[in-house]
Simulated assay, not measured.
Amino acid sequence: MSKKSYKQQGELATLIEHFSKQDGVHPTTIPSLFLIRESINTEPISRVNEPSFCMILQGEKEVLLGEERFLYGPGHYIVASVDLPVTGQIIKASAESPYLAFKLEFTCSQVLEVLNETTINTFQGKNAKRAMYVSKIEPSLLDAVARLASLLDTPKHIPVLAPLLKKEILYWILQGPHGEVLEQMSLEGSNTFRIREVINHIINNYEESFRIEELAKIANMSVSSLHRHFKDVTAMSPIQFQKQLRLQEARRLLLAESTDVADVAFRVGYESQSQFSREYSRMFGFSPRVDINRMRENYV
């Protein structure tokens, strides 16, 4: 890492600490930009990860997608190009050296806008690729991130400059070694674009049963092609994807609203409470009641 890059990472870490005095995820005055700070290692947290770019300035994090493990820390970034149910855990953080990260969410239309304004080669004919990856941050990308973050100190410039710098960040990601992953999700007709439509359908109807033939029709693919490309993109089958969504939502409901396991199981689409409890225990390591009591004690 060059002296300039090392200095920029240090300045970004200082800025995050300045604008996030407490642990947690902090929205900023720049739309879709979040600053993250944690002073302790966390338990695994399951959630749907929106399309986003995340760069760590201090500490380390592990993200599980299906059975795949992504580990990253300072000098690297992670990109998710579609909505994905993941489990994340901060594995290196302390009060003296907290986990500090910068997260920027984006949309398909924003990526497409950059593609339409550049001469980046398209890869529409290639097979779908995994929608999540870790890459080493290049100086050009780090410089754009640093300039966007610095706008937090001069908020009057945000309305004009922030949209331009977001486009620059997306441009450098697209120019990077895995830019094709981001590109594919925006190009209508590509396999990833069609799988993204299936993903959106499952997310919006996760509590309902579906036939795989219905999903294949949405993607305009054969059943075998759908299975292959869906797993290429998400690292899981459509049924596994739906199951993770159901169980994540069940955990959220149990923690926030209700302790009635049978009611929650029914609300997220299960007909059998025993099946729900078995699959919940398999995913989270504890039965629903034990897990929620344990988490509540940890939050007190």
Rank of each mutant, 00 (worst) to 15 (best):
K217Q: 13
G88K: 15
R252F: 14
Q8F: 13
M283N: 07
G88C: 11
G59V: 02
A162I: 01
F266E: 08
L253H: 08
K231R: 15
K167D: 06
H157C: 14
T122N: 13
P155Y: 03
S2R: 08
Y6P: 00
L187A: 03
D263S: 15
K103F: 03
L64H: 14
I137T: 14
R278P: 07
E188R: 11
S140Y: 12
K243V: 06
R294D: 12
P159F: 05
D260P: 03
L165N: 00
R196W: 02
I212S: 04
V82I: 15
N293G: 14
E213A: 12
G10M: 13
R252I: 03
A235T: 11
P31Q: 04
E257K: 14
E17Y: 04
V114P: 00
V223D: 13
Q9A: 13
S190T: 14
G10V: 01
Q8H: 10
E279K: 01
A265K: 07
S109A: 14
Q89T: 12
Y270E: 04
H227G: 14
E138Y: 12
R69G: 07
P44I: 09
T42H: 01
V79R: 04
Q275M: 14
L12Q: 04
L148D: 03
Q248P: 01
Q124V: 13
L65E: 05
F34E: 06
Q275H: 09
Q184T: 07
D153C: 13
E279W: 05
G75R: 04
G179Y: 00
F286G: 09
T234H: 05
P27F: 08
L255G: 05
E17C: 01
R296I: 05
V181K: 11
P74L: 02
I199V: 13
K129L: 10
I40A: 14
K156W: 12
R194D: 04
N298P: 09
L64C: 12
S272D: 06
L65T: 11
T14P: 04
V86S: 02
S94C: 07
A262W: 07
I91A: 05
K167A: 11
V198T: 04
I30Q: 01
